[in-house]
Simulated assay, not measured.
Amino acid sequence: MDPRGGPRERPGTRSKRCVSDAWPGTRLSLCHRRCVVAGPGVRHAGPAAVRGFDSFSEDNDPWGEHDFGSIELEGHKLFWKIDPYDLDLQAHSQNAANPAVTHRVLTLMLASEY
């Protein structure tokens, strides 16, 4: 049992499930402005490309959270991040392991925006 009241899971389990199992618990996908300007292919194919991402390693995911990565899409390098928010989307979730109190938000941005 997690000390915050939810079931204990391996780090990254919920984030990976978010991108691999038809987005359970994901309420929003956000694209930064330049990502939108890059074209509808980037905007629409981005979530599917993130869903298929499985190149996690000790180097790019040292904590095993599976909540950040980079992908190439239509000639653009994009960064993606999944964050656990409270149900009102006002702050980070107090218990990210509990889907009853957590919405996961996917953010996509061009790497050049960083």
Rank of each mutant, 00 (worst) to 15 (best):
R10Q: 15
P62Y: 15
F68K: 06
F53D: 04
P11W: 02
T107W: 05
Y85C: 03
K77I: 07
V105M: 07
E58R: 09
Y85E: 05
T107K: 04
P11K: 06
K16F: 07
H76V: 06
W23A: 07
V36M: 12
H92S: 07
R34Y: 12
A111P: 01
K81H: 03
F79C: 06
S15W: 02
S55I: 11
V50A: 01
V37I: 14
L87I: 14
G75R: 06
V50L: 01
S112H: 03
S70I: 03
V36Q: 12
G46H: 01
G52V: 04
P40Y: 11
F79W: 14
L78A: 09
G52F: 01
N95E: 06
V105C: 09
G64F: 02
Y85R: 04
V37A: 11
F68Q: 04
P47T: 04
H32A: 08
H44C: 13
E74C: 09
P11C: 04
P84Y: 00
R17P: 03
A49Y: 05
I82E: 00
S112R: 06
H103A: 13
N98G: 08
V50N: 00
H44W: 11
T102P: 01
Y85G: 00
Q90V: 11
G69T: 11
A38F: 04
D67E: 11
V19R: 00
N95L: 08
H32C: 07
K77Y: 04
V19I: 14
P47A: 13
G39H: 10
T107M: 08
R8K: 12
A38C: 09
S93V: 07
V50Q: 01
I71D: 11
F68Y: 10
V105Q: 01
D2L: 06
P62F: 14
A45N: 10
H92V: 02
L28G: 05
E58G: 10
M109D: 07
G6K: 04
D21S: 11
K77Q: 09
A111N: 12
S112E: 12
R4W: 07
D2P: 08
R104T: 03
V36I: 12
L89I: 10
G6P: 02
H66V: 00
E58K: 13
R4T: 09
A49F: 14
D54A: 15
F56T: 10
R27S: 13
G41P: 03
A96W: 02
L73W: 12
C35Y: 05
P40T: 15
D21M: 07
Y114K: 14
I82S: 00
L89T: 12
N60Y: 04
E58F: 13
A100M: 13
T102W: 02
R51M: 01
L87S: 08
H32W: 10
G64Q: 02
S29A: 13
R33A: 11
P7R: 15
